[in-house]
Design a protein around this nucleic acid. Structure first.
Lengths: 239, 239
DNA sequence: GGGAACGTTCGGCGAGCGCCGAAGGGTCGT
DNA sequence: ACGACCCTTCGGCGCTCGCCGAACGTTCCC
């Protein structure tokens, strides 16, 4: 503790404590990994972050105690995931601010290597990458989404979701639509309740499938046709 | 450094470094103080945070190097302020997430003591507190602002600003309207370009004036009349 | 029931960092 | 020109915290 303890705005210690949870490289790596919206076991995160299991266990304990992660014990496994979408947004905001450098693709080979993530991926519970941008742009062009004064679904947009039988559950305070800054595209894509619902529908209807164990997704032939018919998205925009 | 250096998502170190800037109690106190949107001298912040001048100097050096603060040297003074509105939003987001406890007023006396900030204050460059909430609610009730699908000005809202000769400069990527979570009210108030413009107009037109050296503001008689005429806000809502 | 796998707790080590006071440089007022 | 004021740099102190390996509890599989 500090020797002299001045009376001060009581928010500072709490803010510092919260930020401290993000301020470790290993914990940051875990939080970024968990941005895929799925639950990871403690061991998976330990291997991913490159630390001993005991170290990861301590880190996860702090993150859970701090309310950033939710845990679920199943047998000998400890599954953790981001506590809620507010935490996910916080991680995104910090990460977006921390990476202000737009790395231009060095060569065609380099840009295509490891670009499965750039083509399409999940971002917590919605779609990102060129896929997410293409959908966001198409929704906007067709008058279903407004971006000029902040992200907002139009009434036509609400009807569009309704026509596809995609339910938009207005639960709690989560906004129906919001912009989420895309790392690779440096532009906002659709997030919020509508973004999550659309992502879930896309996975349920096999418009896209997950690749490997990461959060990259691949658009299927079915998905290509559906996106073209419903939103006029050309296949070239997804490549 | 870590002995074993695994190849890892390169975003984690940057995220951890950024969060580390917030993860100190003294630096957090400085950032929160600077949320008033004004420039403070190094000495003022040192006294406010209760640390030696040399300590504060080192902290400010880190915050400036990290891009969170902008500095301006005038004679023997070093003025610092938040680098831009994106930083302000990051501080707000973290602070809002760090203070999830709704402190109920213990007694009437306790709730009125120190409630100048709760009545009205600036939040970086827009208005907050009951004043900010009252304005946000009034704009919404009159159909000038939509909150149902995210914060967005309506066309009537654009006309309203135009009628008052309040310019809304669409500079850069800053959204025209966005919600900013209010600490004391636990509800979002108007921020973004429109929030900043309205706050500036309110101060220019003497609708409200700053109290003391903090960021609290007081609504003047002129302001009370203006808010009643223009937005139908009753004086009782500001008390 | 025995062994393997997963996770946690504990002790201890080392590095990093926040803090201060002293010393010094630059700027302003008289 | 001199002192007062603001800020910065430096050395040093002490605490915190991330890391590991070893030992242990629990769960699952054969």
């Amino acid at each position: 503790m500090r020797p002299t303890k001045p009376s001060r705005d009581s928010a500072a210690p709490q803010l510092a404590a919260l930020a401290g949870l993000f301020a470790d490289e290993t914990r940051a790596a875990c939080l970024l990994a968990l941005l895929d919206g799925r639950a990871w076991t403690a061991g998976e995160l330990a291997r991913y972050a490159g630390v001993a299991a005991s170290t990861a266990s301590e880190h996860l304990g702090k993150l859970v105690a701090g309310g950033l992660l939710a845990e679920e014990r199943q047998g000998r496994h400890r599954y953790v995931r981001l506590a809620d979408d507010r935490v996910a947004q916080l991680v995104e905001d910090l990460a977006a601010h921390a990476a202000p450098h737009v790395e231009r693709p060095r060569t065609l080979r380099a840009s295509s290597a490891g670009s499965a993530m750039a083509r399409g991926r999940t971002c917590y519970d919605h779609l990102a990458g060129r896929l997410g941008i293409a959908i966001t742009d198409a929704l906007t062009e067709r008058g279903l989404l407004r971006q000029d004064t902040g992200f907002a679904l139009t009434s036509a947009g609400l009807s569009w979701f309704d026509g596809l039988a995609i339910p938009l559950e207005r639960t709690g305070r989560r906004p129906l639509a919001r912009g989420c800054l895309d790392w690779t595209e440096r532009r906002p894509h659709l997030a919020g309740v509508a973004g999550a619902a659309l992502c879930r529908h896309a996975l349920d209807a096999d418009w896209c499938v997950r690749i490997g164990s990461e959060r990259a997704v691949k658009v299927t032939d079915v998905g290509t046709r559906a996106l073209a018919e419903l939103l006029g998205i050309e296949a070239a925009a997804l490549r």
